[in-house]
Amino acid sequence: MITGLSHTTVWVLDQNSAKNFYTEKLGFDVRDDTVMTNEYMPGTSGFRWLTVGPKRQPDLRMLLAEPKPPMVDDESAKAIRALVAKGAFGAGVLDTDDCRKTYEELRKKGVQFLQEPADRPYGVEAVFRDDSGNWFSLTERKGR
């Protein structure tokens, strides 16, 4: 039986900038920030393992990964960077207990919203982008 999701990958254009965005703007915790060495795993020298997650969901790690070797080859990295910059990727749905309030807080911090909070059949939802161009839904779900 599969019991849950613990790690997920978000492609970012710059890990330093993403780390600032996810912690300072979104209020996430940094779960890991470490650089791999060849002694630890051959061929991974310089690979930075950077994960973050919402404070209230300590068992989730979102890997903020730059598309480059060893995760992907150079050609794939180029394609992924272009798609991220174009805004093609959605990175997930983030839960909130008050969408309109959280929207105001994030907006004041300079987070770019594509959609202001609006009532939907399942709750209140807004859509924003991270500093790389990935979009997230910010949803206050009904009955939770």
């Binding site: 960077r81 910059a85 770019q112 594509l114």
Partner: peptide, 25 residues
């Protein structure tokens, strides 16, 4: 250096995305 030639024009694409986001918004 070996990556630079492979980098897409990220800034240009991000600018175009801003225009698309304006229309969506």
């Amino acid at each position: 250096r070996h990556m630079r030639a492979l980098m897409p024009d990220v800034e240009r694409l991000a600018s175009l995305r801003a225009a698309k986001d304006l229309m969506d918004h």
